[in-house]
């Protein structure tokens, strides 16, 4: 899973030759074999490293504040979204929905790694939602649809249809 995400990120960044990865431990933490120095360990660390290598620092956040927010969401993805229990899904989506009410992107007004990796992480949750449930978190689905249409992001994941018109509008408030 993590390795596929990293390979999608590489494609998004437009790097010509794929890096070599291995995994370590039970949780299959990705490790980037680096020729020059020590190996880079962990999804978030590798992702930030790749963005900097590709000279796309804005993907990590273009101000101190947004850098912090990007890190917060990457951490949220790893610790809360990954391997979440069924009963937590509702809370995760509800919180995210509330957060996205007045935002287009997770951090600042720019597309960042936070959007990419939250999109990858939340994809399996959205796949299982029925239309009615999607409508209940309209801000998440709006954001999700925008990110999955962002050029070069949705490499290894299937497209999820998002309806623009509410069908169960009476349930919305």
């Amino acid at each position: 899973m993590a390795l596929r995400e990293l390979s999608s990120l590489e494609k998004f960044l437009g790097s010509n030759k794929p890096n070599k990865y291995r995994t370590q431990g039970d949780k299959k933490v990705p490790v980037l074999q680096n020729n020059k120095g020590r190996p880079v360990v962990g999804l978030v660390t590798i992702a930030c490293h790749l963005a900097k290598e590709a000279k796309r620092p804005e993907l990590v956040g273009d101000s101190a504040e947004s850098r912090a927010v990007v890190q917060q969401w990457l951490e949220h993805r790893i610790t809360k979204v990954d391997g979440c229990k069924k009963e937590d899904i509702k809370t995760i989506l509800k919180d995210l929905d509330h957060y996205l009410q007045d935002k287009v992107y997770l951090a600042g007004n720019q597309f960042t790694l936070a959007d990419i990796f939250m999109y990858y992480g939340i994809h399996p949750l959205i796949v299982d939602l029925v239309i009615q449930e999607k409508e209940q978190c309209v801000n998440v689905t709006r954001w999700f649809n925008h990110i999955q249409h962002y050029p070069g992001v949705r490499h290894h994941l299937p497209h999820i249809a998002i309806l623009r018109n509410s069908i169960y509008s009476s349930r919305q408030h």
Binding site: V104, V138, W143, N145, H146, H149, I162, R164, N165, S166
Partner: peptide, 11 residues
Amino acid sequence: LTTRTFLVGER
């Protein structure tokens, strides 16, 4: 804009 990010399409 409830269900949309931008007015037309996704860009």
